[in-house]
Simulated scan of single mutants.
Amino acid sequence: MVKVLNQFNELVLEQMKTMDKLLYLQSEIERCQELEGELMKLHDLAKLDSIKQEINEMKKELKEIQQVFEAQTDQVIRTYQQQNRVLS
């Protein structure tokens, strides 16, 4: 039973770290999008292309992290259910 509880706690901790990555990346995307708007106003096309590429790369990374988070959520749920069966 202790092993299941430890595993559950470790999974939740990992998921929290993943959530921190998600939140950080989302804030970076927002920051870059604001910068993109400013560059559009200034008609700085060279920098605009660069920031658009950076935004696209971050969005891909965000999608990958979201998939990891979803898998972690499934694992946390399975472990929680297993924990409840052990305790019952």
Rank of each mutant, 00 (worst) to 15 (best):
E36K: 12
K52T: 09
F8Y: 09
S88Q: 14
M1V: 02
E36V: 06
Y80S: 04
K59V: 10
E54I: 12
K3N: 05
K63D: 13
I77T: 08
N6F: 01
V76C: 08
K63R: 14
L5Y: 00
E70S: 07
S27F: 06
Q26R: 15
K52E: 14
L35P: 00
L13D: 12
I51Y: 04
T18C: 05
S88P: 08
Q72C: 01
I51G: 03
I51M: 02
K3R: 07
G37I: 00
Q72G: 05
N84E: 15
E28Q: 15
K17V: 05
S27Q: 15
H43C: 02
V86N: 08
T73V: 09
I77R: 03
E28A: 13
E38G: 03
E64I: 11
G37F: 02
L5H: 05
A46K: 10
V68D: 02
I51C: 00
L22F: 04
A46H: 08
K17Y: 05
L5M: 02
Q66D: 10
K17T: 07
M58Y: 11
E70H: 07
L48S: 02
M40S: 11
M1T: 05
L13I: 10
N6Q: 04
E57G: 08
K41M: 05
L62H: 09
Q53N: 14
V4R: 06
T18M: 00
T73P: 03
Q81S: 04
E57Y: 10
Q83K: 13
